[in-house]
Design a protein around this nucleic acid. Structure first.
Lengths: 127, 127
DNA sequence: ACACTTGTCATATCTCAACTATTACAAGTA
DNA sequence: TACTTGTAATAGTTGAGATATGACAAGTGT
């Protein structure tokens, strides 16, 4: 479990942890039932407060990404999204439209953007 | 100039304003040299502090999105991106990969994601 | 049973970004 | 000259994020 914290980032530390765990799962680097580092382990390794790690784990559990058990640890859960299709589309389209707006202002043409999009999804085996 | 503030959003107010101005420009609703609402106007309309509007305008000027002149107002500037191609790709790919990761966890297949992507870029006439 | 590990909880404290409130000023407009 | 406009400065409030520390209940291993 290789996690890196970018202190220059405007993104909070606990959110960076969530991002990277979700990314590793999507990339297949973390499989179902696989064990995550313990709260105190990761806190020591990253030299940050255990509460911050705990916050990340708790939020991921709420999202259904992992399951946690005191005494055992934290483990990757099943893929199980209970969101409605319309909510899913809304959440994801926000990211996609933000990319499109930025592309416009950066004068990126549609063809280039599509190429980058394909590169992005090839990293993750969607479907 | 129709701007809506979502107080429930985790996104700061000044950032929401920037998002929507950039979006309106990309959508063609705001054209070059077109005048934005004055700081005090928009502040009154949204019932928020003028400083917050000013902050948004200042940041947009720094980004080259608009030009401002005391006494006159704020106006849409030229499209003029000075970022290198690699930086552009990095910034945009962050959004695209985030969408891909979320899609994975929401169990969205690649085909559906591609459809949503096309819908997103059709709103903006990219080239 | 016992010692240990693990996630969780609670409290207190610190920092910083965001926002508000208010006043003043310089540049442009009419 | 009177007015509008963006900008600046100062002071204050709020909340999120992070830290420090200690305790607790649930699970593990012997």
């Amino acid at each position: 479990m290789q996690i890196k914290i970018d202190n220059a980032s405007d993104r909070p530390v606990y959110q960076q942890i969530i991002d990277q765990v979700k990314r590793d799962i999507a990339l297949g680097r973390l499989g179902k039932d696989e064990k995550l580092p313990t709260v105190r382990q990761l806190a020591g390794q990253l030299a940050i407060n255990p509460n911050t790690i705990a916050k990340a784990y708790q939020q991921m559990e709420r999202e259904g990404i992992i399951t946690t058990r005191p005494g055992s640890g934290a483990f990757v859960a099943n893929l199980d999204s209970d969101l409605s299709s319309s909510v899913k589309k809304k959440l994801i389209s926000e990211d996609l439209e933000r990319a499109a707006v930025d592309a416009f202002h950066m004068q990126i043409d549609g063809q280039t953007l599509l190429k980058w999009f394909n590169e992005a999804i090839e990293k993750f085996n969607l479907k």
